[in-house]
Design a protein around this nucleic acid. Sequence first.
DNA 1: CATGAATGAGGTTTCATTCAT
DNA 2: TATGAATGAAACCTCATTCAT
Lengths: 212, 212, 212, 212
Amino acid sequence: MSTNTITAFEPRKTPVQARSAATVEAISEATIQILLAHGSDRFTTTRVADRAGVSVGTLYQYYPNKQSLLASVLENHLNTVTAAVERACEQACHKPLSDMIREMVEGFVDIKIERADISVALYRVSADVGGPALVKKMSERLYRAIERMIATASDVDSSPDKFAIETMLAAMSGAMRSVLEGGGSPAVMRKLREHLVLLCQSYMAAAMAKDS
Amino acid sequence: MSTNTITAFEPRKTPVQARSAATVEAISEATIQILLAHGSDRFTTTRVADRAGVSVGTLYQYYPNKQSLLASVLENHLNTVTAAVERACEQACHKPLSDMIREMVEGFVDIKIERADISVALYRVSADVGGPALVKKMSERLYRAIERMIATASDVDSSPDKFAIETMLAAMSGAMRSVLEGGGSPAVMRKLREHLVLLCQSYMAAAMAKDS
Amino acid sequence: MSTNTITAFEPRKTPVQARSAATVEAISEATIQILLAHGSDRFTTTRVADRAGVSVGTLYQYYPNKQSLLASVLENHLNTVTAAVERACEQACHKPLSDMIREMVEGFVDIKIERADISVALYRVSADVGGPALVKKMSERLYRAIERMIATASDVDSSPDKFAIETMLAAMSGAMRSVLEGGGSPAVMRKLREHLVLLCQSYMAAAMAKDS
Amino acid sequence: MSTNTITAFEPRKTPVQARSAATVEAISEATIQILLAHGSDRFTTTRVADRAGVSVGTLYQYYPNKQSLLASVLENHLNTVTAAVERACEQACHKPLSDMIREMVEGFVDIKIERADISVALYRVSADVGGPALVKKMSERLYRAIERMIATASDVDSSPDKFAIETMLAAMSGAMRSVLEGGGSPAVMRKLREHLVLLCQSYMAAAMAKDS
DNA sequence: CATGAATGAGGTTTCATTCAT
DNA sequence: TATGAATGAAACCTCATTCAT
């Protein structure tokens, strides 16, 4: 799997009937359950189908293969996270820059903590399932959200360059990953939240200073 | 594999004859080759043994199972990286803080770029093989190296707290991972190098300012 | 295998479709065939599947592992033997004690002779497959059958204690085993039949005499 | 293994030097240890050699293969048991028949109880290792010992026929096996001892009565 | 459309035995 | 003679996927 190009990860058919929608939903939910309950090994399509209350055959009607199933869950998760950060960005418009960064970072950390276990489960399958590509796409979306936000900042009018923002995002999620994978306690999480705010604020400030 | 505790990852027997030292080396080398050539799927103990020019049985005399084989390669890699950063830290003693950070970060980025492909290969197996625990251990080592280094800084005499340094390390390697997994070009790498320097410098400065 | 507790010897799923009922039957039959043809070594799940005309995978859908396969055949055999003896016991009700014992013993010996080869094959796997436990269960069943029978005896009204009956059963089947494993000729078998009758009759008589 | 004729089970060389004798002894002892510690599975020649403090190569200098190793231990055990019973028979000479039987049976049961665990371990390998043939040989020896003993009985002068004695031996050891394999408690063992005495006494008496 | 029985390649691991040192 | 590294056939079992019903 590791090196081949990613093909056919998209769900197979768009659910047009109510029944289908329910089925897809059940399968999707079951995928997470199994991932959490059994880990990424022991994760089998049959088990997912069982948990979802459908047959394997049915599962394969909606997803062409195991990867597409996982990819879809991964994409959902990344969407949720991305959307949460986007929302935070929108709400932070027109504030001073450091508040913007704070709210963005806190939005990210909070949603990740809220979904800590599924995050950890997905870290493990990510690479086998086109994760990096998805992450890139999301990073692009976040970049745009952040840029839009910063354009409204009350105390600055330039903006950090794209690469700086992407680096910040990568650093932020990388640090988060470390802690989640290490099984950090709630106390550690709270501390990380503060520190990531500081990290992003200071980096952004420095990056903007350098630009001009 | 995902949820079980890590056991028996240690190599099985210490080679006492000259012959077996060579065998172990061959197996270890073959492990990397196969990982690079086939990716983490398609990675089988049989293939490794073939490539190493020994029988599977021989492989299993030195490694109790597939995981221990990968764990050993992962540990080697992390050791190499950690050692390189430690060396950079030693050489940066007695300089101003920002130079220290620069040299440390550059040491890290350079060794990672030098071993880009094996890094990417290992990211994929890390979680299945006790990676997070190893990473923690290495992070601890690096923390000590950095603390020792900063204690000699010519322009500051306080030091950032442990958590800050660990966060910096996690952010730095997380960002690196993003770029490596995304298949970043040499140009991107160079840019990342600069940006990570800046990120770490500004974060460290901010963290120290906050402390006092 | 010798020391671990017995787990998961139960068949895996109950066939609901007509097709699978046939499959299970074929596998079960093939198991005996292979056991007879190749002995307890050379007995492999692959060979069984081949002989049954199905794939290994199919075999493992119905039996969680090799042991459960053998356990199921062993249980069938023990059931057959037990049932035959129970039947003999029922038919011997209301007769004098010594006739009862005779018919019971002859019932046992005859069914064992009829299935001599599978008996010998199963002796070899019994211990690896939870045999002793099954034997205990069957012994319990037989004890009840014998007790019920003796309660109707026309010439006695007390009954030997449980332990005596169990000892008789163990002695009877132990002696049978010796002869079967030794490859006794039909003539030897006939002689054994008589002698076992005598052995059980005299022991039962003695045991009852002692009790009172 | 099950059906092929037994060949080359004899130890390979007769120890002529003291060193060899010690080695053979160590291996033999280790065989039992491993059998007890690991069960009949997990029993490997390498493990035996390790435990014996020699190399596998050395082991194979004294035993041509794994079976011969086990066969030798089995033979030792059967010899011990047989010798104990023979001794009991000698000591019971000139007594009344029922005392003879009592002492013979008690001799057997006692030695088996004393070696209960190794007995159970050996039951499991017996069939793979030529056990039935050895048992036959020992049964022959015991038959002669018993015949000699009965010839001196103070209260009878005929003797049961050979087949009767063999049947008694088979029944006695069969019953013993059942209890040992079932993990009988000491209390059960004591009870069995009494019952087997009675069983053998009454059967012998009946067999002799029938003959004449 | 749904079902679930069947497939079978392929993976991991063991272990009796050999033979160069 | 002793050693123990190496062998490699062969066993068990899994699981993504298909297709007849």
